[in-house]
Design a binder for these strands. Structure first.
Lengths: 235, 235
DNA sequence: TTAATTTATTTGTAGTACATATTAATCTGA
DNA sequence: TCAGATTAATATGTACTACAAATAAATTAA
């Protein structure tokens, strides 16, 4: 489709190619800007634009005098900018909300795979704190902490990072109903008990019931959209 | 942590702020580069770097003479670059592989929510094609089509786009074992039958069994990594 | 040896000039 | 009058140069 990439975009790819061809490893320093610009045959302005694009993707980090070093690209680097820009449309917002529900239910197997005492104890402590307060705001915070701990327990760093992003997104956007705590069918205690002695299948069922208020809340949070059919992937 | 953002990064945010304050809509044109540079009080070089960053995130598109117009940010824009760069580390790769498994199991409720005859017929047709071939490569393609159809059926566009990305990633990276089809406990037929007459809970259990080869395959695909504890989110 | 100071280097920013593509306006010829 | 070709105007794309700012490394002083 978009045949004619701008030079900066071409250079962006050339740099990635250059990196892999030269066998650069994480933490290695790239040639300084002037050199790299000459190597790739472009002006420093263009090179810097390309580097800037790579920086936003988390491929590199640059510091004055020290130069440009390779870093592990953070998948959610750009994600974050979009989420916090406030320009995300409602449909995408609802999509992400749904994805989070899917993940919390679908992560069961990995929770049992990486089950450790310390996590179970963390959960236990959170529950105890919950039992000691009636403050709605405090309870919401503890609820987030409980689920956040589960994400951490899944042993999946990318997933945990993703969840952190969504937390900040929905914390501001999706306020809870006043009765969310009351209407929950399955409590945190029950979930923990199942984590200790139950099976992934049982946990999934329980988590689905635990999240019932979220499922019910969805229609009010995201008013009916015109159901456009999912488009085929182009390219 | 990283207090001092580079000017280009600051301008990037300023532009987003400027857009939302001025009430720009999708498709609207921004002021031309020279003007915008003056408005924001920076040189055109810096402005262009910021614009370039916004372009990679899908916020804007620019064309010669026509200027800069606002577009809908694609959440997976940067994602795609990273995945196709070939620099993704094994750990992140495994993380994504796991996430996909979670999603396939966790999406059950949404499949029933958006169940439509046309999707069920699509699935039926794929199964029939599967029954008519023994070619391993062909069967793999059909398997991908079957699961892809489920993602589409979930009614979640972002999810569908995400799955498409992962497909291309794992198609090249994660070849299947020869016996994957034989060892599957639950067939596509069974899944479809449950979709027609069963419950989300039943589907989750069935899907977990259907994916058993994927779960078993994981250790060979992603050899044991040093289990680093998940780090706390900074900032 | 350690702390303070200087220097050398590399990224960060600005300004200017020109190339290039594309829209808009103008001209030409039937 | 109007279609098609030509020209002009304009905004982005690219390059070059110069200098500011930060900081690692070298040097000096205590």
């Amino acid at each position: 489709m978009q045949k004619d990439l701008t030079l900066a975009e071409q250079i962006e790819r050339k740099i990635l190619k250059y990196i892999s061809e030269k066998g650069y490893q994480l933490g290695d320093a790239l040639p300084k800007e002037n050199e790299l610009a000459e190597i790739l045959g472009v002006s420093r302005v263009v090179l810097r634009e390309a580097l800037s694009r790579l920086r936003i993707l988390g491929f590199i980090e640059t510091k004055r005098k020290r130069g440009t070093v390779l870093t592990s690209p953070n998948i959610f680097y750009g994600f974050k900018t979009i989420l916090s820009s406030g320009t995300l449309d409602k449909d995408s917002m609802k999509d992400l909300y749904e994805v989070r529900l899917m993940l919390e239910i679908g992560m069961a197997d990995f929770l049992y795979l990486h089950k450790e005492e310390r996590y179970l104890n963390d959960l236990q402590r959170i529950i105890e704190e919950e039992n000691m307060t009636v403050d709605s705001e405090q309870l919401t915070k503890l609820d987030i902490r409980f689920h956040s701990t589960l994400y951490k327990m899944s042993g999946n760093k990318s997933l945990y990072a993703f969840q952190n992003l969504l937390n900040t997104l929905f914390a501001t956007y999706a306020p809870r109903r006043k009765d969310w705590k009351v209407k929950q069918i399955i409590s945190h205690e029950s979930l923990l008990e199942i984590l200790r002695c139950g099976t992934p299948d049982a946990f999934r069922t329980a988590m689905r019931l635990h999240l019932n208020t979220r499922f019910e809340n969805m229609d009010t949070l995201f008013p009916a959209k015109v159901s456009k059919p999912v488009e085929e992937e182009e390219e």
